[in-house]
Structure formats: C-alpha cells, structure tokens
C-alpha cells in the first residue's frame, strides 16, 4: 500500500507542475469568474443561465484535465525510461498502475475542488447569496462530476497501456462523448414505436457495455429547480457504486494488458 501511495504522491506533484493542465484550469476559472457577465447575451432567467453555464464549464474543464493528465502518464514514463528505475525496485506493475491512477484522481479532485470553491464564491457575489445552505445544493454536481472524471481517467489509463497518447486522446474523448450522449439517445430509441426490435436490442447492448457517463450528470434539477426528486440519496450511492465497479473493470483490464507489455 505504501508503494502505491508513494507513486500516487509523485504523480500528484507531477500533475501540479504540468503547465498545460494549469492553463486549462486557469481558462476554466476565468470562465467561472466572468460567467455572470455573460447573462446579457441570453433571454433566460439569470440564475438558470448562470447555473447551467458554470456547471458546464466545470464539466468541460475537468474532462479536458482528466484526459490530458492521464493519457501521458504511462507513455511518458516509458519514453523517459523512468519506468525502468521504478520497476527495478520492489514494485509490481499493478502497483505502479494503481498508484498512477490514484495520483491522477487525487490531482483531479484538487482541481475540481478548487473550481467548486470559485463557483460558490461567484454565486455568493453575483447572486448576493450569503447563506451557505442555499448554495450547498450546487456542490452535488461537481461531486458527481468528480466520479465521472475518475471513470474517464480510468478509461484513458486503460488505453494508455497499449496506444499512443494522440490516439488515446481521440479514443477517450470519443468514449466520453458516446457515454454522455448515449443515454438520452437510448431513451429515445427505446421509446420510439417506429424503431425496430433489432435496433432496440443493439442499443441495449451498447448501453450495457459502454460506461454511462450521463449517469453522473445531475445538473438539470439544479438548473431548473422545483422538480421532485425521487430517492436522490440512493441514486447517488448506486451511481458512485457503479463508478467504482466500472473503474475496477478498467483497472484490472489495464493491469492485464500492461503485465504482458514489453517495456
């Protein structure tokens, strides 16, 4: 365990020092700060747009960070040959991978946490909201976003064990988009009477296999309040459980692939 945490801590340090990630984070933060001013562009209630926009910024920024952070982790170690130093010590390959993953998730958590703090400050100032209890529901979205991005990182890490970073960027982004978009499409396909049963079965299989990133998108009731939510706590627990399960699958797959890989 100590080995894993050592690798994780090193990974967090590397992540914080990577300029590209800091630039993405900075742009995200900038958008969060200027978001209240963008309301003038739209004909919608100010708070609705602000919630939608800021949560969207956090989601997009953290997705970019998750992908850019993870795709280079293993290939960089191989390219710089630092992996030989690590693996020559009493470190198993699986420990290396898990440590790397946990480090990436920790760094991601820090960045999402930082954006969430800025989000709350922006709301407190722009909406003149002084009571934390009124702002607290907003935190639900970034929390679920963190688990979503942890899943995305696992996808990217798994691919990084056998494809180049550039290919991995496209692959992970593609899986993320598909996993985000497929649930609404699946809903449409399943409910449409004109769609034949073969297509419906095909859609069901894809929905079964794909990581369903849309499960973690819980921002709609925050954007349009007043909706009655059923078993919200249970939903959060099962969805987080789902994230752990899928991350487990991806990490085990990554370990199996990486174990056979010649480095």
């Amino acid at each position: 365990m100590k080995t894993i945490f050592s690798i994780a801590a090193t990974t967090v340090g590397e992540a914080i020092r990577r300029k590209v990630l800091l630039v993405i984070l900075l742009i995200g933060l900038l958008f969060l700060v200027v978001a209240p001013a963008l309301n003038i562009l739209t004909a919608r209630q100010e708070r609705t747009v602000l919630v939608g926009l800021t949560l969207g910024v956090i989601q997009l920024t953290s997705a970019l960070i998750a992908i850019m952070l993870t795709v280079y982790m293993v290939p960089n170690e191989i390219e710089r040959r630092t992996i030989y130093t690590i693996l020559s010590k009493p470190v198993q390959r699986w420990q290396f991978l898990v440590g790397k993953y946990l480090g990436a998730v920790a760094a991601l958590g820090m960045m999402i946490g930082f954006m969430t703090i800025v989000l709350l400050i922006t709301f407190a100032l722009s909406q003149n909201e002084r009571h934390l209890a009124n702002l607290a529901p907003l935190i639900k979205a970034p929390v679920m976003n963190f688990f979503q991005m942890s899943l995305l990182s696992a996808v990217a890490l798994m691919f990084s064990t056998f494809v180049s970073p550039l290919v991995n960027i496209f692959l992970s982004s593609g899986i993320y988009m598909l996993g985000t978009l497929f649930s609404p499409l699946f809903q449409t396909l399943v409910e449409a009477p004109s769609v034949n049963n073969v297509t419906k079965l095909f859609a069901r299989i894809i929905h079964f296999v794909l990581p369903n990133f849309s499960n973690f998108n819980v921002q709609n009731p925050l954007i349009n309040p007043g909706q009655v939510l059923v078993d919200e706590r249970l939903y959060f627990i099962t969805t987080i459980g789902y994230a752990f399960l899928y991350i487990g699958i991806l990490l085990v797959t990554a370990v199996l692939i990486f174990d056979r890989r010649e480095v």
Binding site: T188, E191, H207, V230, D231, T238, L245, G248
Partner: peptide, 29 residues
C-alpha cells in the same frame, strides 16, 4: 464486474436517472 455494472446501470440507475435528471427531450434522434 461487467455483468454487475451492466445490470446496475440498466435496471437501477437508468430508470431513476430518467425520472430525476434526464431533460427528457423527446425524439431527439
């Protein structure tokens, strides 16, 4: 794990997500 995640996603999470969080835009496709 794959079987468990699929069953959890389709039978427990998706129906609740649809009820609580989906924008429910019909006939998007």
């Amino acid at each position: 794990l794959a079987v468990v995640q699929g069953a959890l996603s389709q039978n427990v999470i998706f129906p609740r997500w649809r009820q609580n969080y989906s924008t429910d835009s019909p006939n998007i496709a």
